[in-house]
Amino acid sequence: MDSFDDSQKPVFEEAVSEVRENQATAVRSLEDSQNAPSTESADSFARVNRVTGAQSIKHGLRIGTIGLILPDEVPTEVQLTPTLCVLPGSPQWVRGVTTVRGIAAPIFRVDPFFDHYTYERGKRTTIVFQLGDSMAGFEIDEVPGRVTLSEDEKLNNFPPLPASIQPFARACYRNSEGLWLDWDIAGFFSAVADLSKHS
């Protein structure tokens, strides 16, 4: 598994700090929206809760022992065998660039960001997220699936998480399938982009 070297850590931590500020702003917005019941929340999970009642059905993706809830507001697409164009001089964890309906999307590996996670052997599948006008994605072992969560399963305190992921965790749930994170995917990709620029 590839990992960051010591020179890359300050860059990533800087990016994480920036994201944390954005996250704090988002949390404040969320609290404001929760205080105003008739107002639509920016939190996608809250929006689903209102629709389905006590339980909500989401799309989720498991990476090792951690499950990531895919935000409904971010258009997401799975590609089985994309054609990747390798970028010369890029870090080893950047796999290359593919095109999705004419839009170039960088693809990278996530094992450096998840402790003790290793990709399984065999063919790789790619998940691509549309963030505004741009797209980005990473390789996955398993395709996303349906996951049902309830407020009763929400954890008050976060369990120990990988350091690279913890800043982007907005909420944490534990059900029979394990741990699920409602994560800030835009912030995560922003930090990854900054990291790749300085690598």
Partner: peptide
Amino acid sequence: SERTHVLALNASMQAASAG
């Protein structure tokens, strides 16, 4: 079947993002 599954999954996620 696998390709159909992924196609349906993409459709499902697109539908979810459409609200």
